[in-house]
Design a binder for these strands. Structure first.
Lengths: 192, 192, 192, 192
DNA sequence: TATGAATGAGCGTTCATTCAT
DNA sequence: TATGAATGAACGCTCATTCAT
């Protein structure tokens, strides 16, 4: 059984790598700096991870999982789907705005050759909660009859883009902007 | 005035860098390899570009410009806006599918710390054709009254995401899928 | 007095190091791997040996001693010297062929800078049985009157080389080949 | 065509590696030290050699070739074979004594796992002059009818061992000792 | 302009050794 | 004794960049 110290070290390494990559990118985040920021020796990282690449991939899976879990944190299946979707959509945006480093890391990873080093099956599992959420709503004719994969892409892609806009500092979104964004998405995907 | 040879060399360098980065990412695309693929000496690259970063940024601007120009290639201002938008939306997707390397490069760049090294003003200029296109349609009440920046983010983000789905090989989109995607977007953004 | 467990551990460490070095050489035989193969913790090795170098040197001395003892296992001082020498010479070759790992280790060590870290006096003691064996035969005029050290070098060197030929797999020696090898050596060193 | 400077650099690297390995062994001869001794930058070595291992192997082949060529430098095919062999045998010893670093390097290499990384065919070619020299003498019935490979092993092995004795400083060989060594070998291999 | 050998700082990683448990 | 996580110096190697030609 792992003790607290173990968790501390591994988590410190994850945190340091996240910090660095989100700010400087993959290739300006040397292991030596990760070690320094995590307050461990360089060699220690290699007790927990085989290589830099493996560390980065493990970090991606961990953060992606956490992120997706959080999207459904407030999901109330008793509510009408529209409400549930609204909560989900706004949560996507709010989570990212509250955790910009994690968002930047995830986007950077997902748009790099790293992504293709992770087996598709594993990626599917990560995404499956979103996929299931929307697929069911297609099935119950609450949502437009579009292939669920396209639906997922549409919804997450538009949200990502809006998040980037906000995080770029170029545009400060008010809550009514968020509401507008939600409706824009909803009116696109809902059953006519 | 630049002669043909100059163009050839510079273009060969651009092409080689595009090839490498789209496949292997920024790191794993050494200048020596670029030189080899471009069939020039390593030093030659530095006659055209101050540094690797500058070359990469110049490539981004060049490709982004070309890409955006192409989106309006078939724009017919005489047509109803819905038709024009349909053409624009499908063109976004088709251009990317026809030029996957360019798409991958642009996405990788835009989701990396490189992006923030380019002045915001310069980026705005690049995006302005899309911005103007949609802003006018908001003004003329064809589109929902949303801040144009959000609108641009929504439209391009959803398209990007759908393109990645297609390019990933995970899902083969038919032309009716594309049509569905267009309607999904359109129904979201059109004036109710 | 050492208990069985001690012997087991120490021997397991020796065995693991032998295995690794004979196959991969001194470098490419990390202590962590020795520990793994010996089924002990890395730190445990340092209870038995001060350092990697000391372990390697101790292994050399141990194996060299064992090896030389074995050469005289069947020595029958009642027999004519020629017979005794024949037995000795063939035993050198057979021992090595039966224990190739030990042979490779010993040769690798003896041809490396490690050898010179062992005091010459200690090495002399190890070799002395062979030295005495041949020196006496020079004294009794059975062997050519050559400085015994040269004699030892000649005999052991030719045997080593023949062993390597056999172990390389390049040449399969029959028993008549071995007999020929013995005669070649014998005719060289015997008193005319 | 390679200019002098090229030769100088490559040779300086070879020389530095030889110097270091002969004295400290493979794993205490870091590339950084080679670079320093050769008076080139660390990276420069990698223009000439793909890796440390490749450099070491190339050095082996180069020195082995040179060494074997030298053995026949004074060969006079007009002379009786016994004289030719005497010249060859003493040359083996003298060459090594004059070039102890090269001898140590070659022995260290030949008794390490490095040797097996060189294709057997390539090694055969290197040895073939010695092989041919002795094989012919077996054929013409000047030498004992032993498989030539065994003969080569016997002759070179005994010589190597005698060289090590001399270089160890443990025993100073006079020219009459050398003469004795030659006769010991010759009487062993000559046709009775 | 064009070359490509040369540079050397800096990278990812290894591994002999230590020490708190 | 025995453990094995932790250390950090040192390794082999890469690669953006320079400069003599």
């Amino acid at each position: 059984m792992k003790n607290n110290k173990d968790f501390d070290k591994k988590d410190a390494i994850f945190k340091a790598m996240l910090e660095l990559i989100s700010k400087h990118g993959f290739h300006s985040s040397p292991m030596s700096e990760v070690a320094k920021q995590a307050d461990v020796a360089a060699g220690t990282i290699y007790h927990y991870f085989k290589s830099k690449d493996e560390l980065i991939c493990a970090l991606y899976v961990k953060l992606k999982q956490k992120n997706i879990e959080n999207l459904f944190k407030n999901d109330d299946t008793a509510k009408p789907f529209k409400d549930r979707f609204r909560s989900f959509y706004l949560q996507m945006i709010n989570e990212a705005i509250k955790n910009p480093k994690e968002f930047y890391f995830l986007e950077q990873f997902a748009n790099s050759p790293y992504l293709s080093t992770i087996p598709k099956a594993e990626l599917s599992v990560l995404d499956s909660p979103i996929y299931d959420f929307l697929r069911k709503a297609v099935f119950t004719q609450v949502l437009r009859d579009i292939p669920p994969k396209i639906l997922v892409a549409f919804v997450t892609g538009s949200a990502s883009s809006i998040i980037k806009l906000q995080l770029s500092g170029e545009f400060q979104m008010t809550s009514s902007d968020l509401e507008l964004a939600f409706f824009t998405c909803w009116d696109g995907i809902k059953k006519a």
